[in-house]
Amino acid sequence: MKTFILEKTDQVRWYTNMRDVFEAANIAPQDYDWYVSDIETNWRPPGFEPDDQWFTGDELAAFLHAHEIQFIWAVFSAVPKGFRPIPALAPYVEDNPRYWDGTEPEPQLEGALFEIACWDSSGTILINLPAQVIDSFVTRYPNTKPLATARS
C-alpha cells in the first residue's frame, strides 16, 4: 500500500496546512525541489500567485514558515533537487478520478518521487511516500488510513 489519506478526524486543527503535514511526516522540504499545481488557498499572501509553479526546497520551506496558509486544493510533487521536468499535464487533485478509481495512483508528474495532495480542505492524500515517512505521519495522526479503504 503506497497511498494514504487523512480525513474525517479531529486530530488536526485544520487539514492541508502543509507546514504541519511536512512536520508530521518528518519531511524536510529543503531536500527536494517542488512543483506545486492546482492551487487554491484560504488567502493569498502578498506576492503569492496561485499559479502552477516551481519552488526550491529552501523557497518552499521559507514560504511555509512565513505564512500560516491552508491549501484548499493543491498537488505538491517532490522531485530530486535540480530536476525540473516540463509537465505534459499539470498534476491536479480536484475532479481527478485517479484517486478514486480503485487503482493505486502514482505521482502524476514524470520523475516525481512522491506527491502530497490537498483535497478540498478536508483531506490530505499521500502518494508513494517512503515507509518511514508514512510511519511518522501515522504516529502523529493515527486516523490516517489507506486510500483504498476510504473509497469503500
Rank of each mutant, 00 (worst) to 15 (best):
F71S: 01
D10Y: 15
G82Q: 08
A148Y: 13
A25T: 10
S136Q: 09
A131V: 11
Y32A: 02
A78Y: 01
D31Y: 10
I116L: 09
K145A: 10
W14G: 14
T144C: 03
T41S: 08
V75I: 08
Y15I: 01
R44P: 12
F22L: 07
W119D: 09
E110C: 04
T16L: 10
A61V: 01
D120C: 11
V12K: 02
Y32D: 00
I116A: 04
W43M: 12
F22E: 07
H65F: 15
D52R: 15
P105Y: 05
W100L: 02
C118K: 04
P146K: 13
V12C: 04
L60S: 01
V21C: 08
I5E: 00
S152F: 13
P146M: 14
L129Y: 06
P29S: 08
F76S: 02
A131L: 12
I116Q: 02
L64Y: 02
L109I: 03
A88Y: 10
V12I: 06
R84T: 00
A88M: 14
I116C: 05
W34Q: 05
Q132L: 11
N42G: 09
G111M: 05
T103K: 15
R19S: 12
N17G: 09
P46K: 13
W34Y: 03
A78E: 02
F22M: 10
S122M: 15
Y99R: 08
P85C: 01
R84Y: 00
I39K: 08
D38I: 00
R19P: 03
F22T: 11
P97Q: 09
E106G: 14
R140K: 12
Y35H: 10
L147K: 03
Y32F: 11
E115Y: 06
G82R: 05
Q53T: 08
T3F: 06
P105I: 06
T9Q: 07
P107V: 00
L64M: 02
S77E: 08
H65K: 15
I86H: 11
L147V: 02
P29Q: 09
V75Y: 06
R44Y: 14
H67L: 12
S37G: 04
P146R: 14
T139L: 10
F48K: 06
N26Q: 15
F114W: 01
N96L: 04
L129Q: 04
P130F: 04
R84C: 04
Q132G: 11
E40I: 10
V12A: 04
A150S: 12
P87K: 09
I69N: 02
V36R: 01
A148M: 12
D120K: 10
W100H: 07
Y15G: 03
E59S: 05
N96P: 02
V21K: 08
F4G: 08
Y141S: 06
V79C: 00
E68K: 10
S136V: 09
L89K: 12
Y141F: 09
I27D: 05
A88N: 09
V79Y: 00
I134F: 05
V93C: 07
T9F: 07
P146E: 14
E49W: 12
F137S: 01
W43Q: 10
I127D: 05
F22H: 07
G47E: 06
T16D: 11
T56A: 06
D135F: 06
E94I: 05
P91I: 04
E7A: 15
I72H: 06
P80H: 03
D38W: 03
A61N: 07
D38A: 02
